[in-house]
């Protein structure tokens, strides 16, 4: 009976630790969100969305970094999505059984989790240094490099799930292959592919490291793609590390805006993907 009791005790300890670990993990999420709300909500006002970033010591808002983030993210998606979808299409439709495809998949998976600061260095070397100055365009391309692997991955996964009978039926009607893919396969995989794009947007809208030496930062309102542009993450980085209390306050507010935008995006993406999974 002693051995039995010892086994049960050990089991109870392990179960307790397991529950404890889960509470520990959830605790961090709650703690981070709570502090964000506490610090950020008090600074949230209309002025944040209508005024420019202030010099130290005066009031202001985050209009130019918010606009900059929207432009950079939008441009990155515009560049990265078609490229990612086409590459995913090749891997799932034309070259599904190629050796090359498995090589590309392997490389793509590595790019998917490659350090984003290295992407920043890469774009600095190929765009910023030759052009001689920092630019919003370079920042958008750096973000696009991060978008591509995410979209490639989801596009391929979703197209592979499309039943081949659908394609065969369309091909039997004499439809050219490109039309089969665009009209039939894309339509069947639409929700999943959209999820991929949303996840990519969620991923890049908080990225800071690749922007530090591509789009840099800008204290002023600028829509010029050929000049440095402000972005929320870069402004948070600058303001949070500054000694000025009102800059730090704005950094918290910016952090709140980004986090909830990103979390909302990933929840929407998940609910879009959910019905597919259960069916």
């Amino acid at each position: 009976m002693d051995l039995y009791a010892a086994r049960r005790r050990r089991n109870r300890i392990a179960q307790g630790l397991s529950v404890g670990a889960t509470l520990f993990g959830l605790g961090w999420l709650v703690l981070i969100l709570a502090v964000l709300l506490w610090e950020g909500l008090s600074g949230l006002s209309l002025a944040v969305f209508t005024q420019m970033t202030p010099p130290p010591g005066s009031a202001g808002g985050l209009l130019n970094p918010i606009m900059g983030s929207l432009i950079l993210t939008g441009l990155a998606v515009l560049i990265g999505t078609p490229l990612g979808i086409l590459a995913g299409t090749h891997m799932a439709e034309y070259g599904r059984y190629d050796r090359l495809t498995s090589v590309i998949r392997f490389i793509n998976d590595i790019l998917l989790s490659a350090p984003s600061i290295v992407v920043g260095l890469f774009i600095y070397e190929v765009m910023v240094a030759p052009m001689g100055h920092f630019s919003a365009l370079a920042g958008a391309v750096a973000l696009a490099v991060i978008v591509v692997p995410v979209v490639v991955r989801t596009t391929e996964d979703m197209l592979v799930l499309v039943p081949k009978e659908l394609r065969e039926a369309a091909a039997a009607l004499g439809t050219p292959r490109a039309v089969v893919i665009i009209r039939i396969a894309y339509r069947a995989a639409r929700a999943g592919m959209l999820t991929g794009v949303l996840l990519a947007v969620a991923r890049i809208s908080g990225e800071t490291a690749p922007l530090l030496f591509t789009s840099l930062n800008n204290q002023f309102w600028s829509l010029d793609l050929n000049a440095p542009m402000a972005s929320l993450p870069a402004v948070i980085f600058q303001f949070a590390l500054s000694p000025y209390a009102d800059w730090q306050k704005l950094a918290w507010t910016g952090a709140l805006i980004i986090t909830f935008a990103v979390l909302a995006l990933s929840i929407v993406a998940r609910t879009l993907a959910a019905p597919r999974k259960s069916s």
Partner: peptide, 29 residues
């Protein structure tokens, strides 16, 4: 038929671009 071939070439080019990005990162660094 040309549209078909064009789409196929585009898709292939995009897939190769993924490899080119990796090569580009290594070369640039």
């Amino acid at each position: 038929r040309t549209g078909d071939a064009l789409f196929r070439a585009l898709a292939r080019a995009a897939a190769l671009a993924v490899l080119a990005v990796l090569a580009g990162v290594i070369l640039a660094l």
